[in-house]
């Protein structure tokens, strides 16, 4: 089958971790899915639903099936410059600190976006736009398999987000049940040997669920409670 994948870092196989020497591509779930199907991955880390929707509109007709990972609500719609997406205050602060100080224009734009998020954003507006774009995706392509990433999309509440796989693997690696509690998770860890924010084992499990969903025609909603790993926590995370 000829499959298109749209989404953010949860589907961007090449999204790098803190470990420079780690190649995330071979263990990423889109790569694993590509072993069974002809996969074209349009995902890019940090992008908004609107950005992915534009890729989808211009390309989905070339594909038999579409898998769409629905990113978090409220990301800046378009890249601020090239690959620089203002997807969170942390990301914006990081970009403001790391761009060439001579790029005053870019620093100003990043700062303006940051100030918008701090002082002027309207989260209800962002949620409503998110839902309306989601409707457009379904209206355009009713057979699209929608997979939430972080689970803040109201109309997809019944569906398991991809983060449930990351949580399941962290629970398995740490034995800490708080990883299953969306409201009370332990402090975040730095990713080392992960792909799409998940361990290689979680990617394998997730890829299997995606394969099954392609057969069923809809996203399966029963993530595993735990995932067996061959290495200890420190191999994957710091």
């Amino acid at each position: 089958m000829n499959i298109a994948i749209y989404g953010d870092s949860f589907a961007d196989s090449s999204f790098k971790t803190a470990l420079e020497s780690w190649d995330p591509v071979p263990t990423a779930w889109p790569t694993l899915l590509g072993l069974e199907h002809n996969v074209k991955n349009y995902s890019r880390a940090g992008t908004s639903l609107y950005w992915s929707y534009k890729q989808f509109l211009s390309t989905h007709l070339s594909h038999d099936r579409v898998i769409f990972l629905i990113t978090a609500v409220g990301r800046w719609p378009n890249p601020i410059e090239d690959l620089c997406f203002g997807n969170s205050l942390e990301a914006l602060d990081h970009h403001i600190r790391s761009v060439d100080p001579g790029r005053e224009d870019l620093i100003k734009r990043l700062s303006v976006v940051r100030d918008w998020y701090v002082w002027a954003r309207d989260y209800s507006y962002e949620q409503d736009i998110h839902e309306l774009i989601l409707r457009e995706i379904v209206r355009t392509r009713p057979d699209t398999i929608l997979i939430p990433t972080v689970g803040d999309t109201a109309s997809l509440r019944g569906l398991s987000p991809i983060t449930d796989w990351a949580r399941a693997s962290l629970f398995s690696l740490t034995g800490d049940s708080r990883w299953h509690d969306h409201a009370n998770t332990p402090p975040l860890l730095t990713e080392l040997r992960t792909s799409c924010h998940m361990t290689p084992e979680a990617n394998r499990s997730f890829s299997g669920f995606v394969s099954e969903s392609l057969k069923l025609g809809a996203w399966s909603s029963s993530p595993p409670k735990s995932i067996t790993h061959s290495e200890p926590l420190s191999y994957y995370y710091k």
Binding site: P77, N78, V112, D115, W116, V118, A120
Partner: peptide, 19 residues
């Protein structure tokens, strides 16, 4: 004032007409 300044600066620096 901070909110209005953020709104004003959005139009000057960061708006996307296409969006």
């Amino acid at each position: 004032r901070l909110r209005l300044e953020a709104v004003r600066d959005y139009w000057v620096w960061a708006r996307s007409k296409e969006y």
